[in-house]
Amino acid sequence: METFDYLFDVRDEKRHSSLDTVEKWVIEEEGFLPNPDYSYRTKTERPRVFTNYDYYNFQPSQLIAVETINGKTVNLPKTYQAWADAINKSKYILTYIDVNEETEERTTYCPKTWARTVDLLVSVANLAAQGDKHLPAPAIFDGYEGSIDIHWETPQMRMLVNVPKSLSELISYYGEDSKGQSVKGKLSDRDDLKNNLLAILKSAY
């Protein structure tokens, strides 16, 4: 099972990037609650680049780095800057605590769920950038019960992808285009996931 530990481990990735400030995330045993002492810190060593995407078809000058967590960065093609912006904007989820208005139940979000979401989007963007269609950027929101929603809303199509809190649960999607055609399903392993989602997005857009 994919655990996305690579986003949390320190391995032998190449050092690359001039980003100096990284966010310190503390994952507690239960519920991945943000540490109340959460704070920014300056890391003396440079963040490391994760290299497990389809970057090899791009020159370094064609890529932009997006900082994720624990000083790790991921790369997207420059033509997908809007996707990078959406990922950056979604970082609020990592410290967000939803309080239900009526039940006052509190929901927090696991960094690994967010990392899984980013992993999916970066993979799709890098694959899409090698094709002839430029795909619109999604919006990324906190979802039910610790899940994360990826939402596309354009005049041509609307699609919703739900990344569940549990890494063992499948990612679900539903999309439809302006002609009334629709797709629905669940995505399993990582390769199927990115390829299938890309195919769906391309056909719908």
């Binding site: 939803d98 919006a139 929101f141 906190d142 979802g143 929603d149 939402h151 354009t154």
Partner: peptide
């Protein structure tokens, strides 16, 4: 729709999780 779910960003009105059973 509770304000925590309102987005008002381009085509996005509110978060998809705003739909709840009551």
């Amino acid at each position: 729709v509770h304000k925590n779910y309102i987005v008002n960003d381009g085509p996005y009105m509110f978060k998809p999780r705003a739909f709840v059973e009551r």
